[in-house]
């Protein structure tokens, strides 16, 4: 996993509420056996017309947002299916950070596993960042994970919270499995006790 330290990039506004993972990446694109290549179908039904041409009204089809690395989203972003294809599609497009008032639990988890930082900020703060994101070429934010701040184009710093363990993993690009393997003796002991006490499990 690519570490996440500091990111400075274009922020795209996508304020609609309840953007579900079917909208982020529709089910018909889940037939891949790879993690990569999903970026072209990110937000497919919003991004393309039925004939396959680009919808010029959709934010990610407009300059400079084609190069967006940050998404300012609405409440309950990522609700619905557990598909990790949703963060994979965001990552493949180039988005490394999503800021929203709140997120669905499974999507929120999945982001951290892929080097994407999801940041929860109150609606009024998101509204200010949405206004920043409307600034076109000047819609540049900096996200500093070490210091836990989002820096607005006007220089104002906004503090955000992040789980310390997840922060550590993101900063260092750590794979959880390797870390859990270090607890193998504890898992062995748990299983041994289980087999004696509750053998049907």
């Amino acid at each position: 996993m690519q570490p996440f330290t500091t990111l400075t990039g274009i922020a795209a506004p996508l304020p609609q509420p309840n953007v579900d993972t079917d909208k982020i990446i529709p089910a018909r694109f889940l037939k891949t056996i790879l993690r990569t290549g999903l970026g072209k179908n990110l937000f497919d039904t919003l991004r393309y017309r039925p004939d396959g041409s680009e919808n010029p009204d959709f934010i990610l089809n407009r300059e400079p947002y084609r190069k967006a690395e940050i998404l300012i989203a609405g409440p309950n972003f990522g609700c619905g299916s557990s598909r990790e294809h949703a963060p994979w599609a965001l990552l493949d497009f180039g988005i490394r950070c999503v800021i929203a008032p709140d997120f669905a639990d499974i999507f929120f988890n999945n982001c951290f596993k892929n080097g994407i930082l999801p940041i929860k900020l109150p609606q009024e703060v998101c509204d200010a960042l949405l206004a920043d994101a409307e600034l076109g070429a000047n819609a540049r934010l900096t996200v500093d994970l070490e210091r836990q701040v989002v820096v607005r184009p006007n220089g104002e710093e906004i503090r955000f919270e992040v789980d310390p363990f997840r922060k550590h993993c993101l900063l260092n690009g750590l794979d959880d499995i390797g870390q859990t393997m270090a607890h193998a003796p504890k898992i062995d002991a748990f299983e041994t006790r289980r087999r004696a006490e509750q053998p049907w499990l």
Binding site: S82, P87, I106, N110, K113, D176, T180, H183
Partner: peptide, 16 residues
């Protein structure tokens, strides 16, 4: 509960 694919791999490897 539902999990993402990274967690599927984590459970396959560690059962946790």
């Amino acid at each position: 509960f539902g999990i993402g694919t990274s967690e599927v791999e984590h459970v396959l490897a560690t059962q946790t």
